[in-house]
Design a protein around this nucleic acid. Structure first.
Lengths: 225, 225
DNA sequence: GTGCAAACTTGCACGTAGTGTAACAGCGTG
DNA sequence: CACGCTGTTACACTACGTGCAAGTTTGCAC
């Protein structure tokens, strides 16, 4: 491997050297994969290319990821895991839609969306969204489902599975819709104005969902930058 | 191939011999794939197995499908294409949610859901939903998006992309949620009572969406079989 | 029917994906 | 330092997916 001692850290909660090495290798893989995506374009490089660029063997790559797609999708996973984390620390009494909106708002900052935005712009011309990317969103959906089920466990109405499944799926769809619209409008633009528009889109998307898509009475803000 | 003249047909709209042969081969592939899924379980058979069972060469298999997954996902594709077809022949003035509900109701009959139900029961224990299956749902989502956009093209409110994207995604999520709940409750049960429950679930799911998931005022029917 | 062109199937070869295995190197601890 | 544990590496092997150059079937005109 190409990673000597490397004395400087940020996380005070991961002391073990092994943990650090693994994290560093993981990062090196995704970095190399993203770099190759930039330089050669989607589908024009192999696992061996990534392994070479990351300074590891082909076999080791597969100890971390199951495919090139998976390595790139880890960016999406990282973003969505972050969102789940934000969602978990919302108060349980808060309505789900508001929690979701708040959690997403917290992620509308450059540091969080930058990798995602670049990945999207680099892969959007190719066959839509890659397999593994869709899987990442679906995985997040199941997590939202779990959170929603925990929250509604003891509520009066005895909410059934349908409610929770449909709610979780719709929240994901609306969040995804907001990001897609934002990407299609702004591309890789990360200026404050652009991010403000993203936040507004997220608010609007959740509002649409909460209103059952009955916009006949609310022709309000849809663009705000 | 294992398909001589084969004099009997059903479709009077596909005259060409080539078309018939291709359709028959395609069907033979999916049949063989499903049969192998039944007998050997997911992931325990190869493309060559399918090709042998279908009486074609491995190379020809790849002329029809890109992977074993894709061959099996064609079942999902078939179902969803059918749904899109139903959706398209709804009046354009009808609200989208009602159209979606009506289109889905039309598919709650044994002949349409049987293959889907079997596929679900055979693959649900393995890693959730396969890549290609998710892709099929996403492909359907883009079609719903297109239909919704066409409908709302000239409406007063000047609906923007966000509305259409979020709506299409939410409709798909709720339809999928209804089917998932149904499968988890009933498994491969295709009795009239079970199908009635599916229909009720679809109605309920669309109602939830139309009400913005505000069920505080409507503790109405969620199970009806 | 005969001949021809287009469409389809097939076998072959090749590069890549992904996995099992066993030897090897780095880390943590006594 | 030496030992056990964890992670890396090389190697071998099966299966995937595709380009290519045959061979075969179908549609069509004569």
């Amino acid at each position: 491997m190409a990673l000597p001692p490397s004395p400087q850290d940020v996380e005070p909660a991961a002391p073990s050297r092994r943990e650090l090495n693994k994290a560093a290798t993981r990062q090196a893989i995704t970095d190399s994969a993203l770099e190759l995506l930039r330089s050669k374009g989607p589908g024009n490089f192999t696992v061996e290319d990534i392994a070479d660029a990351a300074g590891i063997s082909r076999r080791t790559f597969f100890n971390y990821f199951g495919s090139t797609d998976a390595a790139l999708a880890s960016i999406v996973h990282g973003f969505l895991d972050n969102a789940i984390q934000q969602l978990r620390l919302r108060p349980a009494e808060e309505p789900m839609l508001e929690s979701a909106q708040a959690a997403l708002m917290a992620l509308a900052d450059p540091k969080a969306v930058a990798p995602l935005a670049e990945l999207f712009t680099l892969t959007q011309q190719s066959p839509l969204m890659s397999h593994t990317e869709l899987e990442a969103w679906d995985h997040c959906r199941t997590q939202v489902f779990t959170i929603a089920r925990e929250r509604l466990a003891g509520t009066p109405g005895e909410q059934d599975e349908l409610y929770v499944h449909a709610l979780a799926g719709s929240i994901m769809s609306c969040g995804k819709a907001a990001m897609e619209v934002w990407f299609s409008r702004r591309g890789p633009d990360l200026t404050p104005g652009s991010l403000a528009e993203l936040r507004q889109l997220l608010i609007d998307a959740m509002a649409l969902l909460g209103a059952g898509f009955n916009t006949t009475a609310s022709p309000s803000a849809t663009r705000s930058s």
